[in-house]
Amino acid sequence: MSRRVLVTGADTFWGGRMVQALEQDPSMDVILGMGAHAPSVPFERAEFVRADQTYSILNRIVKATQVDTILHTFMITNSTTVPKRAMHEINVIGTMNLLAAAGTAGSSVRHIVVKSSTLVYGSAASDPNTFHEDTPRTSPVKNGVERALVEAESLVRDFSEDNPATRVTVLRFANVLGTHLTTPISRNLSGPLCPSIFGFDPMLQFVEEDDVVRALVHVTRGSIPGLYNVAGDGRLPWSEVAGICGTRLVPLSPFSPLKIRPVARLFDLPEELADLLRYGRGVDTRRFAATGFTYNATSAGAVRTFIRALRLRRQSGREPTSYTYEHDVEQFFRHSPSVMGTHEP
């Protein structure tokens, strides 16, 4: 069965990787990448559409292209990448518009995959050791990124209740470490000194970068609906993560260290890390494993992949020129009658 897939945030790290991964799958007939900026990685056969971040033209795109699947990767889970206001716009308003477009009468969309984060569980002393998909948070929502994700997920939940014919998948990913991705955690682990909160050594769970892509491909290809936690097996204390990465922990005062701006600046300490570095977070991943997904890396394996890639970057020169998107060139390769390539339908 051939599929027509639309990927949001194709200009971002995850969107770009998802488009590339789907391009490898011959059953994905049409792949559309949507984004506000030019994509940062080359696409082979996918088409790129520039659209604003709140998807006001999504309705028209869906109608015109008759896509059957929307892969919503453009959810901000790292508050350092965008300003607070923009994060709400992207996660909540963006998701709302996307669902509205997908839910219009006569819509061709049959499957929506949303990339969310285990941030929705929060992190608090009162937490259970392991969060199942149905376990509610035990603490009030404290920061912008969690609030935006919780709101976005509730929109998705409402949508799936109102549109039983559309399959809806929500994947909640644990903190990601891997070869390429840069997050506050990876930046902290990259330096010679790494922040910790004095007297706390939380248990953390990670998922490897490639496993994130594989998990999204897995649910997209198999049209698997549902809500799932995605995280590598095992958990390890923050001190051990730092140990594996060969960085030295700097204990910060446990009395609201992140309010002291210079300290938060010195390290990369967004507010969503404040509680995570105290209480950690663990999730149950059996439900996702039951859909037939196997991980390449455990939590510790993700840390190892990350540090091995970092060591290589440290010890080798600059990577060859990165890709620059040229709209006209890409259009030429896809649509010019002179092109004899294999991409022609």
């Binding site: 590339q20 490898q24 990685v41 080359p42 892509v213």
Partner: peptide, 8 residues
């Protein structure tokens, strides 16, 4: 190059 960037 794309498979090198996204090693499935």
């Amino acid at each position: 190059r794309s498979t090198a960037i996204v090693p499935i």
